[in-house]
Amino acid sequence: MDLDRTRPLWRQIAAEMISRIQDGTYPPGSRVPSTLELAEEFDVVNATAAKAMRHLREEGWTRGEVGLGPVPG
């Protein structure tokens, strides 16, 4: 996915992750990429990926699970 560098990158990453959760790429209970994996995939700094992941948690799209990391909520 190519990001539009004129819009907030974290919002675009969060929107892509929501889309993937909705289309079943990441079904409930499965593991979603880590912050580091997202940063690498989208070619952004870790802080940008972390902000996207924090937004997903705050909006109820993911939750943390010990030993698994973030999973769709």
Rank of each mutant, 00 (worst) to 15 (best):
N46I: 07
M17S: 01
P28S: 09
A50F: 14
P28T: 07
G29Y: 13
D23N: 13
E58D: 15
L56C: 07
E58M: 10
G29L: 12
S19L: 12
G29H: 14
A49V: 03
S34R: 06
R31K: 13
G24D: 09
R63Q: 13
V32M: 14
I18V: 11
V44E: 05
L36E: 13
M1Q: 03
G24A: 06
Q12A: 00
D43K: 15
I13N: 02
L56R: 04
P70W: 12
Q22F: 03
M17W: 04
Q22W: 06
R63K: 15
V45R: 07
S19C: 05
L3R: 02
T48V: 15
L9C: 02
L68N: 08
D43G: 09
T62M: 07
P72Q: 04
V66F: 10
A15P: 03
L36Y: 09
L38C: 09
P70V: 01
N46A: 12
V45W: 00
P33K: 10
E58Y: 04
T6Q: 01
G69N: 10
R11M: 09
G64V: 05
N46G: 13
G73H: 13
T62K: 12
L38W: 02
L68R: 13
E59Y: 09
L3P: 03
V32F: 00
A47V: 14
I21C: 05
L9I: 01
